[in-house]
Design a protein around this nucleic acid. Structure first.
Lengths: 228, 228
DNA sequence: AAAAAAAGTTAAAAAATGTTAAAACAAAAA
DNA sequence: TTTTTGTTTTAACATTTTTTAACTTTTTTT
């Protein structure tokens, strides 16, 4: 999914270069020439992930613009890009609610790094949630098992947890107790039997992948092995 | 509540001045003289809100230190404070996982502003009015959900509260109890059923956004995930 | 090899949740 | 006040998930 950037900059040439660069980096960029137009457009469409705003502009300057945007949306990430490098100006920028203040001339790589840091903070990506084994993939975030790069199987919570542990311990022994403690926090006869039932279910799926096998080691546990 | 700052800086005089300043501004500051000591201390006590780390230090430099800290804690806010002002150095700083990079000599007010911005992002006060997820936007002020950047749906109070919590916990599990406690302050059978009814309603909307999915985890809760 | 224990398998029962519609309630308008 | 409108709750039925039960096979113990 592409991030949408709201760029406000009166220097057409600079804006064009910046816009092109960001597009090559996979961003969608909408450019607005001054604060007045920008505010108008933002009122019509709030759907942006980050704003890059110049300070000195005709019609409506960046500081005023950000004040007004902040009154509508106190949380959207905003970075000032400007030639004004006095401490006083920078502090004003932060005071009106900017997240960062980048001084021209700047390296685009550094602007990019700062944008990425900010975007990652505000829209945290869910931690890696895909485990590959054999010809299959377990997507923990979406609760699905994809067999042979094809068939998607929706998993119930219990199914997912069991597969998660087996996949994480690929080619290693997973004890029954380990599984039960993880699923229930304790161990008893009926829970153990429930697990047996689920193992049977999981085994049916695993069988469909010729590169995977779920081996039972009686009195020890289970081992998901990937075959060549 | 006071924020706890983890300061790593080999220049004793500079560290003392900075520490004193931050204390007058209401922060608690623990100072460590080099990367080696710092890492040792951090391993014993993870309870810090933000780290200020010098790059050039004897024993263990800041870059190495941050790499090691990030492997323990991928999310704690880190600001480099350093005299190294080459683009190459700055980019390295961001690459190893810093949130900001402040070049010496700097005005303490500006450092303070940057710290505040970062702390507000990481430990947000709940005054956000708009949350973006997938291709959609929840406008808490106007009580509307904008789907696919197009269709506006007016939300009832209950609908809004449910969506608010789901959007705030994007890609994370929201337990049914959490939702019920937030909506009603207590939990019973009928309230739980009411929630089920509303989840069905909300799910219909969410389905319209191809970048969003509302997953049910029976016995656990719900998870709003943003795809791709 | 026989008995006991553990695990595999399938089906049924129980519990939880999904879904739709109607009833009850509350706030605003006539 | 009554009517209208919108919201929340309850009810009824459907589906999914988990647990229990019953029976079978495998493994371990005696």
């Amino acid at each position: 999914m592409k991030y949408k950037i709201f760029l406000v900059e009166d220097d057409k040439h600079f804006a064009y270069v910046l816009q092109s660069f960001l597009k090559t980096k996979g961003y969608e960029v909408d450019w607005f020439e001054n604060g007045e137009i920008a505010l108008e457009k933002y009122k019509n469409n709030h759907f942006y992930h980050l704003m890059l705003i110049d300070v000195m502009m005709p019609k409506k300057d960046g500081i005023t613009l950000v004040k007004e945007i902040r009154s509508i949306n106190p949380s959207i990430p905003i970075i000032f890009i400007t030639a004004k490098s006095q401490n006083k100006d920078i502090l004003t920028g932060y005071e009106v609610g900017a997240d960062d203040y980048v001084i021209k001339p700047f390296s685009v790589d550094i602007l990019l790094a700062r944008m990425q840091v900010l975007l990652n903070r505000v829209y945290p990506r869910s931690d890696t949630t895909e485990i590959v084994a054999g010809n299959s993939l377990l997507d923990i975030n979406r609760n699905i098992l994809i067999l042979n790069n094809k068939e998607e199987i929706k998993l119930s919570p219990l199914e997912l947890e069991i597969l998660k542990i087996l996949f994480q311990n690929l080619n290693k022994l997973t004890t029954k107790n380990e599984l039960l403690m993880h699923l229930y926090g304790d161990v008893d006869y009926f829970k153990s039997r429930t697990l047996d039932v689920y193992i049977a279910k999981v085994r049916k799926w695993i069988k469909q992948d010729p590169h995977l096998e779920l081996i039972s080691l009686p009195r020890q546990g289970y081992k998901l092995v990937s075959l060549k």
